[in-house]
Each structure stands twice: as C-alpha cells, then as structure tokens.
Design a protein around this nucleic acid. Sequence first.
DNA 1: TTTAAATAAGCGAACGCTCACTTATATTTG
DNA 2: CAAATATAAGTGAGCGTTCGCTTATTTAAA
Lengths: 196, 196
Amino acid sequence: MRPRDEHKEQQIRQKAIELIVAEGLDGFGVNKLARAAGVSPATIYIYHKDKEELISSICVGVAEKMMDFSLQNFSPDMDFAEGLRVQWRNRLEYFMQCPLDMEFIEIMRYTHFYEKVTAMLTISFGQILGAFMRNAEEKKQLVPLPFEVYWAVAYAPLYQLIKFHNQGNSYVNSSFTLDDKLMEQTLGLVLKALKP
Amino acid sequence: MRPRDEHKEQQIRQKAIELIVAEGLDGFGVNKLARAAGVSPATIYIYHKDKEELISSICVGVAEKMMDFSLQNFSPDMDFAEGLRVQWRNRLEYFMQCPLDMEFIEIMRYTHFYEKVTAMLTISFGQILGAFMRNAEEKKQLVPLPFEVYWAVAYAPLYQLIKFHNQGNSYVNSSFTLDDKLMEQTLGLVLKALKP
DNA sequence: TTTAAATAAGCGAACGCTCACTTATATTTG
DNA sequence: CAAATATAAGTGAGCGTTCGCTTATTTAAA
C-alpha cells in the first residue's frame, strides 16, 4: 500500500486558507485549490468527502488550534485581572503569529460552517471560561453578571481592535496599528468596568 | 416611453437580502434571485451593471439606512452618557425592526464589498462621532483616549450582544435573548469604563 | 532473496450541471 | 410610431465531482 504524502494534505489546508482569505468564500473552488496546492482535484477527494466537508474540517482545525493557544498558561483559578490579561495576551500573540488564521475565522464566522465551531467552543471554551467567571465572582474580583454581558465587555473590545488592525484603519484614522501599549490601555478600561 | 415598475426594483433588493441571509453569499445567484423576485434575469441587468454592482449597491443602501437611523435624535454636543445611550438605543431599535438588514451587514462585513461601506462610514460616521468624542473629552465626561480604543470599548460590547441574540445562544447558555434591561446593564459597565 | 499479487495514493481528462450574462422578441407607454 | 421596459430562451465558461488509469509501497508465497 502506497503511503500518504502528508505534505500534500498540509498544502491543501494551507492553500485553502490563503485562497479564502484572498478571494473570499465565493471565488473559492476545488479546481482552483488543486492548482494552487499542486495536486489533482481528485486527490482532494481522497482526503475529503466533498467541498462542504473540506471547508468544515479546515474551519474546525483552525478553531481548535486557536482555542488551545488562547488557553496557554491559563487556569480558571487565576486571579481575575491576571487571568484576563493572560487571555488577552494569548489572543493577541496568536493573531500576530497567525494573522491568516484570524482573518479566515472572521470570514467563516458568518457562514453556516461556523455552527460546528460554535458547538465545539461551547463545550471546551464555555466550560473553562464559565468556571473562571464564577471563581472571580466568588473572590469578589468581578461584579456578578450574566455570562453574555461579561463576555461582551471582557472580550469584544479586543476583537474590535484586532479588526481595526487587520483593515489597517478605523472610521476616523487612516492608519492604525495595534501594539502592546494600546492593548494594555484598553484592558485597563475593561478591568475598570468589570471590577467591583 | 414605458415607465419603470418601481415595485420590481424593490422586490429585487428585498429578496436579495433575504436570499443572502438565508443561504450565504455563496449559494446566492442572479438566476435564483430573479426567480425569487418574480422577474427575468435580464430585468435585473436593466437596473444593475453586473452581479458585483448589484450586491455593492444593496450593501451601501442598507448601510446608509442603518447609519441614518443610528444618528436619529443624536447630536455631537450631547452630554456623553446621554449621547452614548441614544446611539445604543437607536442601534438596538434598528436591529429589532430590521433584523435581516443587520444579519446582512454582518455577512458582508468580511467581504471585499464592505470596502465601499467603510469608505462611506469613515466620512459621515467618523466625523460626527469623532466630534462627539472630542466634545465629551473637553467637558471632562470621557477619559482621553485614542479613537480606536474609545470605539472598541464604547460599541463593540453592544454588537457582541446582538451577535449572541442573533445566533440565539452563547458559549455557555443554550438560549439568549437581548432585551432593554441587559442593554442598560452593559451600557452601565461601558460608561463606568469610559468616565473619568 | 526474488517477485508477483494486492492495495491505496495520486492524476489528467472529462462529465453534467449551474452560473453570470446576452440576444431576440414582445409589451407598454407617450 | 418611437422608445424604453420586460421577458423567454438561450450562450459559453466554470463549477464540483468522478472515471479510468498509473504509480508507489507492502505483503507473502515461491
């Protein structure tokens, strides 16, 4: 039996992300991908049932990687300010290291492919971060809040900054670069909002 | 000369939004749209140069409508807390009245079609809200901040709540509905973060 | 150790179908 | 009639997917 060339599957996944980020979900095609990855269209169908499953599996793969990354050096028992800072740092570092992954996920977020990702995140992410929130509340380091309100205040600002950075400008400034100082300044405001 | 049936153009725009929200940008086609709107494909090309321009113009139209709506009863001279509350209320009301528009814009946000919208928003939105921010700073009702940091803290949480509402759940709760009380609670936290 | 059968990877070419878009024709107004 | 709208019926291009075949590797009988 001829063994798989793992490099080929890697190429397929990598080029798929690049193509979708560059040209969007429309404009992405299996034949185009095959040409870009240097394989035959038929080869793609050895690894994936169809186009749907191909995109889905890449989506879930990237999301898993991102989740693992953002929980590095993090524990739900941490003090609130410290734990939130670790997560902000992790997300920022991931986005700096893998900007393509980040853009890819943003594109997928509003497609039906993302439902599977949400299901996964709910299980792994939700449990850990739910515990983190409850612990912080018990230690009186966080005002008691519905989870959604907490999440919206605690994380949405960071993602918005990353969005501004990715598009390179905001509604008033014609250029914008996110750095550590800006992140700390924003995190400071968020902590001010959430601390009792 | 035979006059245009304006109802047809309206139908085309409305059904295009419905189709894209229901099936995503891929899965959206001119022939499908024609069938849904009850016109011939060729009729669409009387009103629009090509598919690109069709989507673009709908996108800009919706964004303009949304922007006008969110600036109702608002002036850059308003007190900070009051002005921010008016904007949050307007956005929430718009989203309650036109949930399809909101989902449509969210889908378009990460496509190249959105560049024209960003350009438009930068001019109209950015100037008014930039002025609002500077005024609030001068009145000592808002801590001095880079515009992007201000925007991320002031608006991103609301959009995140709307996102949770649209998808009907969050990472820990299996159902979520955004209402006035939750909005006020979140706005309270945001104001706490931004006030000196 | 040799070698042929077995098996899965991999490929180029093409299939059927849908796509964005056009053409030829009819309809409806001033 | 003149002129613009509206349409039914296309068009070629490109899509996802499959087919018939070759290649690389393992297995195991001779």
